[in-house]
Amino acid sequence: MQNNKNDENNFEILNQFRPERTEILKALHSLQNANPQHYISSDAMKAVAKYFNITLGQVYGIVTYYSMFSTKPRGKYIIRLCKSPVCYMKGSFNLKNYLEEHLQLTASTENISADGLFTIETTECLGHCEQAPAMMVNNTIYSNLTREKIDEILHALKTNNYEL
C-alpha cells in the first residue's frame, strides 16, 4: 500500500520531465527535494530507471557519482560546510568541529541529529569565497560565518522551523 503511494508520488514528479536521458539530473534533484529526508530512495531509483528506460545499475551509478545526491536518509536541513582553500584559511575546520559537537553528530547517529533536523556534510568551494567561511543550508547560502552566527542560524532553524 505504502509502496504504491510512493510510486505514485515518484511518477507524478517524473511526469514533469521529458523521458529523455538529458533530463535525468533535473528529475533526480526534484525527487530528492520532494523527499522530506532529502535522499533518493531505492524505490525512487527504480521509478527513474523505468521512466527513462535505463537499467537500475545505471541510475545507481549516476546517483552515487554526484556529491549532491544521497542514497541515505538525511536531516530536514542539510548543512554543507565549505572546506576548500579560502574557507580553510578562514578556519572552516574549527566550525565543522563546533557544529558536530553542538548537534552531537557522530557516525553512530548516521550523521542525523537526534531531533531529525540536521545533517552535516562538507563540500568543495561554494563560490562565495569573498565572504568565507561559507556554508549552504539546503538551498540557502550563509557566509562570513562565526560561531555566534552559526548559533543564531541553528536557533532560528530549530525554533521557527524555517521552510528552506
Partner: peptide, 25 residues
C-alpha cells in the same frame, strides 16, 4: 538550463557534455 549536481570534474568540457547527456561525469 541544465543543472549539475556537485562535481568539479564536470566543469571540464567533455565531461560536462557527458553529464549533459545524463551520464556519470
Amino acid at each position: 538550463i541544465y543543472i549539475g549536481a556537485g562535481s568539479y570534474l564536470c566543469g571540464e568540457e567533455l565531461t560536462l557534455i557527458e553529464s549533459l547527456e545524463g551520464k556519470r561525469g
